[in-house]
Design a protein around this nucleic acid. Structure first.
Lengths: 253, 253
DNA sequence: TAGTGGTCTAGACCACGAA
DNA sequence: TCGTGGTCTAGACCACTAC
């Protein structure tokens, strides 16, 4: 540990709760992450090694190690054997300038609403049946919704749900998001496999979204699975690209 | 462990190498993943609990646990406390039908080529300087390339690299990808923060990519960091959406 | 040579779900 | 009540890096 090592103040790790349900590694990771966002740990700063940090906090090395690993997986820290652990050099906040409207939407300041364009039960064709891992021809709920925020149309959402969910009513979907409805039925989404691309809007889509004819659309196709590994939903979404984008942080291991 | 538990044949775990550099948890994870892809472990199948698997293989529980966790993070397995570990119900192969051309590109069957449209050293403006964490006005290498596959234009790639790389020559970039050139200099990419969206092509872009005027483009803005956490590249890429898409598997924890 | 992270072991106790 | 995964401990040895 050399001079450039940044010793986190003890105060960062106050109020650790050993009796509550929140894991210790999670508490440690959260506090380090907060220190990074608050600027207490600057980009490029080195932090103490695992053992020293563990002794200071009265925690074992595996616990500290897991806390740090969480932040490595998030792309906030970088570790090198023989060197140490450093904060990534790059502003963690928006790395691209956002349009103000998108920022508003993302922050949830606007009022989201849903207009139900289609709500019917049909039979799964071959491709859909394969995606949802159900029998071909089995009943599925087919939804098409227009999502708006502060009266501005943002996206057209088309979804198919397998048999256990074909009784989801129209009224539920106007007041709540689809995932919210599913959560109300005790279904928690665990895995989403998605493909993102783009295409030109059809005349109908352009009219619904209030963009120019054949304007560019951002599209996402997704299959979602619950915590039992069962496919719960297949969807094709298209977004106004001026109001929506996908962010991702990839970490090579 | 009940009757539906799927006992992996011992043969799946043969040839484990305890002396080589490949970690044991990685060897175990690879073998289970192969069993899933080969159909030995079918969707929905339960696998043995961690302790039983560890005893069978002569490995400790943490090692087995880590192997399984790798596959959970990949979205191949689902774990539930009190229940067990199961294979996710969904074909692991392409979950959406691909155009044959995209598939060819993705599989690397086609011959990728690069045409260098621009290669100059400029000064970083405020926004770029912030993205790369360099001084405003410091020299950066500005690249613009047209990527083709089998003579078909696929993407326009615009990149900016900070000072240590401004001497990258034109000839290197024609024969090799940018990341390949960087790897040759001992730089390994570790983290990429990217935003994906879409927009209409400009007249010039449409001509370069061979698509219709104002056709839809898939765009990606990215900042990449090396294993020391230092920003190495900022790029804005735009892809022909009929030939390219982004896949991602998200896992809620 | 000293310090770092990467891997591995052998236990322990707990929370949750099913029977 | 039992079996499962979730968490935590206290060590050990090794590989890599800087000095």
């Amino acid at each position: 540990m050399n001079d450039s090592t940044n010793i986190l103040p003890r105060s960062v790790f106050m109020d650790m709760d050993r009796s509550g349900p929140m894991p210790l590694y999670y508490q440690v990771a959260s506090r380090i992450e907060a220190a990074i966002h608050d600027g207490e740990l600057r980009p490029g700063a080195r932090i103490e090694n695992e053992i020293a940090l563990g002794e200071r906090l009265g925690l074992s090395r595996p616990t500290i190690r897991r806390a740090i690993q969480e932040l490595v997986d998030k792309g906030l820290l970088v570790r090198r054997r023989g060197i140490g652990t450093q904060v990534v050099q790059g502003k963690v906040t928006r790395d691209l300038e956002l349009t103000s409207l998108y920022e508003d939407l993302a922050r949830g300041n606007k009022h989201p609403k849903t207009r139900l364009l289609l709500h019917e039960v049909t039979e799964a064709d071959g491709e859909l049946a394969e995606s949802l891992a159900v029998e071909k021809g089995s009943p599925v709920l087919h939804l098409r919704r227009l999502r708006t925020a502060d009266e501005t149309p943002v996206a057209i959402l088309e979804n198919f749900l397998p048999e256990p969910f074909i009784d989801i009513g129209e009224s539920e979907l106007v007041d709540h998001g689809l995932y919210q409805v599913l959560r109300g039925r005790g279904v928690t989404m665990r895995i989403a496999r998605q493909r993102i691309s783009a295409r030109s809007a059809t005349t109908e889509e352009a009219a619904l979204l209030g963009i120019s004819r054949q304007g560019a659309l951002l599209t996402m196709d997704r299959t979602a699975f619950d915590n039992a590994g069962v496919a719960v939903e297949w969807g094709h979404h298209c977004y106004r690209p001026d109001l929506y984008s996908f962010e991702a942080t990839l970490v090579n291991r």
